[in-house]
Amino acid sequence: MKMRVVRAALLSLAMAGLAICGAAPGHAQMGQRVSATTIPTAQLIQPAELNKLLKGPASARPLVLQVGSHMLFEEAHIAGSEYAGPGATADGLNVLRARVKSLPHSKFIVIYCGCCPWTKCPNMGPAYQELHAMGFTRVKALYLADNFGADWVSQGYATTHGQ
């Protein structure tokens, strides 16, 4: 009987600990699949809108971060964007955190991937969650319905390649 009580107490303590850790702000749940569809619609930005912003005054331009595959980034990426991924891995989220940690939380940031169709993208959900958890208030996710090639490059929007 005594042993059962002790076991139950230990189990409760462990569960409470897990609950507290799970609720701790500042980190997305790394390694878990978080669909891009969890990103609120209001936080999406369309390709044409971002392209227009990037042609506008420098003061209105966001920091654009690619949070997907590095190989695809090398092949082609949005002109002026930086690599900070992949969002689906713990290492990738570390890269993202390191890139933004010194920025004010009001910084306008746009993240994008386009590795797969939007509903199948493994990177956008975790990357968005991470920035949100870090306290960034002006984060937009570029909505690429099919992929980066079809929805950005083929539209003739500003693209470059390399590291």
């Binding site: 695809l72 590795c115 992929n147 079809a150 490059v153």
Partner: peptide, 11 residues
């Protein structure tokens, strides 16, 4: 190789 195949920019 990706570029020579027209851009492997989505899988």
């Amino acid at each position: 190789l990706g570029r020579h195949y027209g851009g492997v920019l989505g899988l």
